[in-house]
Design a binder for these strands. Sequence first.
DNA 1: GCCGTTTTCGGCCCGACTGTTTTCAGTCG
Length: 605
Amino acid sequence: MSINQALAEAFSEIAKLTELLGGDKFRAIAHDKVSRIVEGYPSDMSTVVAAAGIDARKKLVEIEGIGPKIADKIIEFVTTGKLKELDELRAQVPAGLMPLMQIPGLGPKTLHTLWKDGGVENLSGLKALIANGKILDLPRMAAKSVAKLKESIALAEQGSVRLPLGLAMPIAEAMVERLKKVKGVTRAAFAGSLRRGKETIGDIDILVATSDPAKVGEEFRGAPEVVQVISAGETRSSVRIAIGKDAGRWGTLDDNMAGPTIQVDLKIIPEDSWGAAMYYFTGSKDHNVAVRGRALDMGLTLNDYGLYKDDKKPEPHKRGLKPLASRTEEDIFKALGLTFVPPEIRENRGELKLKEAPRLIEIGDIKAELHAHTTASDGDMSIEELAAQAQSRGFHTIAVTDHSKSSAIAGGLSPERLVEHIAAVRAAAGRVKGIAILAGSEVDILADGRLDYDDELLAQLDVVVASPHAGLSQDPAAATRRLIKAIENPFVRVLGHPTGRLINRRAGISPDMAEVIAAAKQHSVALEINAYWLRLDLRDLHVQMAVEAGGMIAIDCDVHAAADFKSLRYGVLTGRRGWLRAEACVNAWEPRRLHGWLKDGRGRG
DNA sequence: GCCGTTTTCGGCCCGACTGTTTTCAGTCG
């Protein structure tokens, strides 16, 4: 786990413990906010502290949301690996109590009561209190609440993990399409972290504008995959749906891939408030809080119905007040004097200070695929089928990059077979017109950083994608050396799925990304965003680091079958989350520039 | 615990839904 991740978890735990102990709510919120800030911070906090030396405290306080006390805690954590405050808080709470906060509907107040008045110290204690009926003696605990709690416990015991983007997106799109067909519906769309393109999704938010809210609600809650109706109001409903078990290329989901259910929220939106609602429910939370703070500073108030003059009274939309903006997201940004920013970068990481709308990479910009497999290794298309698929997507270049010899399980090519394969690719390139077919290889980076073929063989290739496949549990320092050594090989142009992580399955290696990015820039190597939704590697934060450092990015689908080209959208979303522009993405370059760079490393304009 | 061209103290985003209540607390997003 990265230091930032560890810090984020520590601050989040402090927030939860503070709430549970009945401490200051806003103190808890402040820690929770810092948890998200640290988690999303592009450089390691240990690096920040070390680089600033004696000025570490001053440096940290410059980060919005971090004050002197939090700064000291960060310094304490990165220097000692511990937080005294956290240890003290933990000592006050039974260890078995904290996991109960995962139970939906069970918040800090209720848990506090269960603990102090009901004597509950862990899950079995809670179950016993329910079983013997004594839970009914506690305040605000009657039959319905208890029944709901029992149901929630059962769901929590099944475990839940965030759903990978590539599984959530098709589910949401299918639901939106179905709701669009309901009579009276004028608009339907998904919002939330899915719209922002996050790599994993906690729940799906669907917004609908309709003349018949009741009918949409019924349709939504009555869908065949619904396993639980959590709430059912006039304008909002929440359900849990079962998730299909098809996890794409790599077969059936294992238990860590996805919870058996995911929550889906439906919001019925007045047509006039569509933009305000989309903005509100797209988030992120921290972006929303920052924007609404700005609104308040301007004497305005923003909710999911619109932007209103602030008269210090709640629910302006119910009192007949006319909003200053509400119909489109653009209207709201404009009325607040902000530059419109697309959903993917609404994370309160500097986007609100932009003077000009960023032109981020789009799917239509991608004109080349540099990472694809054929039947020669573990793909299921021939060279020409692959080329035809790429051509049908309007690409000018497709690189054939089958596995190297060490990836035996993926049918990696021996040096002799690679020589034959190169000839086959060149022959196909001669026959197929209208697209450049390049001879390449996805070469394993061995654990010590050596490549799987020698340089004489690599020299015969048009494209070398170097990727780590095995030895993914090595320590960060070794991983950093490994990747940098591969980058330094003069024939390498793309570093494929740099960490080897698989979302919800394995962490992969944790190299010092700043060093890897600097080396890649120096040697004119592009870092890949592997678009396959299980990988999304580089991840968004590292893309942003690379972009800020002036590095190059490749977005590749790691094609094994024709359907894999559809992953491109997830790679592009990840790029956009990292503020990537077409200029820095080699797949968006014109043929001459791309091929020139592949040949001699000089492609940067 | 953080933050500040109305504030260095007193705020801190805002509303829907539920269940237990007779007017609201708790949870969630």
